[in-house]
Design a protein around this nucleic acid. Sequence first.
DNA 1: ATATTGTTTCAAATATAATTGAAACATCAT
DNA 2: ATGATGTTTCAATTATATTTGAAACAATAT
Lengths: 117, 117
Amino acid sequence: MEETEIPDSIRCEFEEKGGIDGIVELLPDDQRIGYINSIARAISDPVRLRVLFALCIQPMCVCLIVAMTEYAYSKMSYHLSILKDSGLIYSKQEGNYLIYYPTDLGRKVVEWIGKGL
Amino acid sequence: MEETEIPDSIRCEFEEKGGIDGIVELLPDDQRIGYINSIARAISDPVRLRVLFALCIQPMCVCLIVAMTEYAYSKMSYHLSILKDSGLIYSKQEGNYLIYYPTDLGRKVVEWIGKGL
DNA sequence: ATATTGTTTCAAATATAATTGAAACATCAT
DNA sequence: ATGATGTTTCAATTATATTTGAAACAATAT
């Protein structure tokens, strides 16, 4: 298993593409991979995905999000921070309340899920 | 904090939408949420995302994927199983080799990431 | 049959993420 | 200033995901 053998059925096209090096060159760079990963991770949890969808229907203060999900404040705060850090939602202080909104990216992601998945 | 108060700036639209119950009705059901979560989780890891991209450029046997990523077989096998379980890739035995391919869903996801994110 | 190469599976160890409850912070009303 | 409500932060715990290395499995060649 030292030198990697290549199965017949793909050898030709594989060589044409410049082998491993040729393929690796076409891949997104690490920063972009990290960016995509963070968005994917944010929507990989059920409650976070539901909250993102809900905010696209209607922006809400944390107290309403908490009421909707029946999660504790501190728990929800943690999940909101992950959605926020990934750029899918943002918040605005309104008096005593913090209201969360989807970002353009957040809406785009939700829209595409609706259409494409 | 018993009865949830609603901030002025959203109360009206919130009520119009039927409040929490009205919003919850519009959310995807649990099965669909789970489906989306599993795809998102699959691409939330750097090596899995890179492998998915790479397979869209060129289907490969595990030995080539291992060579490309410099991951151990058992480790890569674990990551491949997550991509496979989420429906993004599939495999076909070719003689002694197992070759992995992107599914239609896998290609669609990669394509959308390229365009939309 | 036996050996060789390619791959997966398993259980144990490690690392990362999520939950919990208390404390802190912010804004508003008194 | 003081107290009340809404929210976040923190450290400790618990749960989940990933890594590791050995063993098992599968296909081919001898």
